[in-house]
Design a protein around this nucleic acid. Sequence first.
DNA 1: GACATATAACCCTTCGGTAATTTACCGCTT
DNA 2: AAGCGGTAAATTACCGAAGGGTTATATGTC
Lengths: 226, 226
Amino acid sequence: MDSTSAGAGPAATPTAPPPPGRRRGRPAGTKGVPRAEREEQILAAAVEEFGRHGHASASMAAIAARVGVTKPMLYAYFDSKDGLYLACLERIAARVIEAIDTAMAGAPATTAGEQLPHAVLSGLFSALEHRRHAWFVLYDRTLPPDSELRRAAQRHRGTVDALAAQGIAALLSGHGNEDPLDADALKHMWTGTVSALMGWWIAHPDQSARDMSARCARLLTAVRTP
Amino acid sequence: MDSTSAGAGPAATPTAPPPPGRRRGRPAGTKGVPRAEREEQILAAAVEEFGRHGHASASMAAIAARVGVTKPMLYAYFDSKDGLYLACLERIAARVIEAIDTAMAGAPATTAGEQLPHAVLSGLFSALEHRRHAWFVLYDRTLPPDSELRRAAQRHRGTVDALAAQGIAALLSGHGNEDPLDADALKHMWTGTVSALMGWWIAHPDQSARDMSARCARLLTAVRTP
DNA sequence: GACATATAACCCTTCGGTAATTTACCGCTT
DNA sequence: AAGCGGTAAATTACCGAAGGGTTATATGTC
């Protein structure tokens, strides 16, 4: 037997154990799980694996095992490892950007620099509560250099940075600082902070998104007035 | 030919092109580069590769090629990939911790929360100026889970955290906050900030350690008074 | 029987790791 | 001076496992 195929028995705790039990409303000529459903399962499993181990270390066999299918299924749905990664990237980038977007739109425009970061963090926590590793698909340091993947990830991170840029520029120019490099470095600091909080959250699975949000409120005020 | 051995010709820009030129004071019965010297070359190359790509993606052949030797040399000096990584880890952990230590000792004890972070950053920048990737050997997310390597890295990161803990605790208790989880999360935020700045620094090779130190002074004050 | 879903078994490359061999320098003897 | 062995440094050529990717085949439902 090759790879981690589950053979006849069920794979190790697949996301959806595929019993012979029937599903309703299935299209004609179909044995297993409908295409759209499988696609979701695969994407969820891939986001988890890629986020946990990074593109380089994640293995297609592990993703397949997590879903409870075999490797060729992944290649039938997404052409290649890079294709699957790209699909994950697009999906979670959209989710992250939308979370940031609505958080910024909903936050009080008054004294933007005060509460806006906390609003963004809260939005991210609730958007990623059940996919905490997803953040690290966007911020994967193991992508092959000079690859299409790396460029795509950088593009999406650039979109996130563009959203942050408004608040950053306001904050800096409030101090008479117009240095574009300072603004760029501060964007990195911000996303790095989010990464750090996501990492801590992953290490503390019992903490809910609301817990994290409250904690960050405390931490941000503590940092700001030493 | 196997691996990336350079064959007869010199490897692509080896750290020290080994010409037939003689060295002085070499022990009896010796052909090539003395042991201590090679060891340094290998460690430097390995830190760079491991820091760039992470343990999982870094390859022994690439490290060997960077030094200008072949794979078996690496195994003669360090027993295995993990052994080499461990040697890198110990080395740069010592360097990082010493930098933080002296920065904290030298910083003015007055108004610790004010200038201490900047002093630590400055110390790190000057300690890692010519090894900017080294930081990511300590903070490598690609280490195999449940491995000795991961435990060793966590141990060293714990030492860094312990140094940070003093300042963190002071800062939080100044706000009436004694929550140990808050303190832990704030430590993660701090090391995440350092990681972000190191990443930005790597992307801007023209910036000197002094440049970075000055930039961080501006950024820290901007962040603290929004 | 036709179609969609799924799998077993395989190929090929990369990479960690090893065994056998070669090269060059030293100090000693003749 | 010429040779000789010892030793450290280094290389070539290989092995086995892991992983990305493919082909041929099976299975169930309409």
